[in-house]
């Protein structure tokens, strides 16, 4: 019989330790619990951290299980995990942009809204979690179609309904929009889905650079695109938010 690989055994023991009751542990706690030298323990932890199985808390320096383990267990990112991680950033996006914020994931042939933050004025608004948006015309949908190959084929195969005079339905023109989306890192929707409404969205990636969702703002076209141009500070705010959520999911800085 082949011998077991010691460093893998140690790594497995560390993961079990971190999965136990006490969720965050310091290097010396881990080393002493497993009877390892600190240097050895640190080497293994660093490798696990690079693979995303372990995360280090910046403030305390302690270690905890990483988001990557979730993906392994599920093979997809739980949308409720996505919402929990996005909560702070999407609140801030609504606050800074003054518009409502939506977070969407691919679901069947459309975008499923998994999180919605109200526009920060005192108007009556209804929570739209669970609603669907079209893949081919909404900003969230275009982002998903541009970055996620599955969403891309769904968008090409489905019937691209013309909602307004601005909706792009022809396959070539649609592909051009997706190329532009990839080149710019965001997608826009200026009255292509709803009359009078514009939105802008950017992709959320996990640490494997897999697109797991899209986040964007939606508002009256007069506010979001005065004089026909999307306000650059809104685009920047949306992209900042998408990057912040991606970082929280373990994606590297980009």
């Amino acid at each position: 019989m082949a011998r077991n690989i010691q460093s893998l055994e140690r790594a497995a023991a560390m993961l079990r330790l971190l999965a136990g009751g006490e969720r965050r542990l310091g290097l010396s706690d881990i080393a002493s619990a497993l009877g390892l030298a600190k240097g050895t323990a640190h080497g293994i932890l660093r490798t696990l951290q690079q693979e995303g199985f372990v995360e280090q808390d910046a403030a305390s320096g302690r270690y905890q299980l990483g988001a990557e383990l979730l993906r392994l267990g599920n093979s997809y990112l739980d949308v409720h995990e996505l919402r929990a991680r996005a909560l702070v950033w999407t609140d801030d996006l609504a606050r800074s942009s003054g518009e409502s914020v939506y977070l969407g994931v691919l679901h069947q042939q459309g975008v499923l809204i998994v999180h919605h933050v109200f526009r920060p004025d005192d108007s009556r608004q209804v929570l739209e979690v669970g609603a669907m948006q079209p893949l081919h015309s909404s900003a969230l949908g275009k982002v998903l179609a541009a970055y996620d190959p599955v969403a891309h084929s769904e968008a090409l195969e489905c019937e691209r309904e013309s909602f307004t005079a601005h909706t792009v339905t022809a396959p070539e023109a649609f592909e051009e929009i997706l190329d532009l989306t990839r080149a710019r890192g965001y997608a826009a929707d200026t009255e292509e889905t709803w009359e009078g409404i514009a939105s802008v969205a950017a992709p959320i990636h996990d640490r494997r650079r897999m697109p797991v969702g899209a986040v964007g703002i939606t508002g009256a076209v007069e506010r979001v695109c005065p004089s026909g141009e999307m306000r650059p500070e809104l685009i920047a705010a949306v992209r900042d938010c998408a990057r912040a959520v991606s970082r929280d999911l373990g994606a590297s800085r980009f």
Binding site: G20, G21, L69, L70, G73, N74, D78, V79, H80, E81, R83, A84
Partner: peptide, 15 residues
Amino acid sequence: RDQMGLINSAAEIET
């Protein structure tokens, strides 16, 4: 999550 092992993360309870 920790004692029953029915979920992997707190957010998964909703799923």
